[in-house]
Amino acid sequence: MSKEELPEVGDNLTLETDESRRDFLDKFSKGIFGGLIAGGIVNALAPVHAKANMDGSNLNFSTPFKPFELPPELTGEDAILRMMRDLQKALKKPIEQRHWNMVIDLRKCVGCDACSVSCVAENKLPPGVIYRPVIQQEIGTYPNVGHVTLPRPCMQCEEPPCVPVCPAEATWKRPDGIVIVDYDQCIGCRYCLTACPYDARTFDFGEEYIDGAADAPKVFLGKEKAGKYETDPSYEYSKEWKREGEKSPIGNARKCHFCIPRIEKGMLPECVVTCIGRATYFGDGSDPESLVAELIALPNAFRLKEEIGTHPSVYYIK
């Protein structure tokens, strides 16, 4: 068989060497099979002219370039950019005219805990203090089973049950809807912990991750240097907090505050920007043009334990 009679692979692949029909079919089938496995969907999405061998030596650029068209859902900009614009816009309004909302798309959450971990890092949370755990549950009975992941930040309720119970008036709702704790006023009675229907408050028992670690100053980093990260101050509520002795926030109730210091600097909360699936949205719900306002209006948006009458500012989509 002459090379002119050989079938072409794609539009641009030509065989340049003489080979037996058997050899050719062998290589051809291996190439197709290997390509299917190795390339997968990415390969399928790649431009057609890149489907030749890997070093590109066989590419025939004489054939017209056919750009690959993205599916419609991937053509828009990253939601983060729009949320950042929404945030900047909201910050120009007086505080009482904006209302921060969070929307979590449960269909996109994969339960990776990136939000929990980044929150711990951002706020330098000690052991036992967690603002945004991701609850994971298996549902159904084999073979019909499913996996549900539910990130649970503070719901920043419109009617927060944790606020009126505080005997020291150390916790209140800001005009923009964020429920905050004044660490310097909190007496550490933990009444608010019992009052929260979402278990969203935790108590700082004063533990540190380096507790019990060997000092070992000359071995590796040593305890002191290794612990510097968590003994450095945190900047919750835009104020410097150094955890030492029994000083606040040790001995206080602690909770998610939508990363107030970041918001005030025009940045999205840490859990929003670190979500690998873009499952967490944040913005000014009082702005009808914002992304969160659009999402809240979806018919499949819902809030947790709505029957209690707390009116959470956090919505979920399922």
Binding site: P164, C166, A168, C186, I187, Y191, E246, G251
Partner: peptide
């Protein structure tokens, strides 16, 4: 039982009367 027992004394003079504990 309190996290900051000494701060509790202020409750005597300035309690939150919306709170049962106040």
């Amino acid at each position: 039982d309190l996290g900051h027992p000494l701060r509790a004394f202020k409750l005597i003079f300035d309690p939150n009367l919306h709170s049962m504990m106040g």
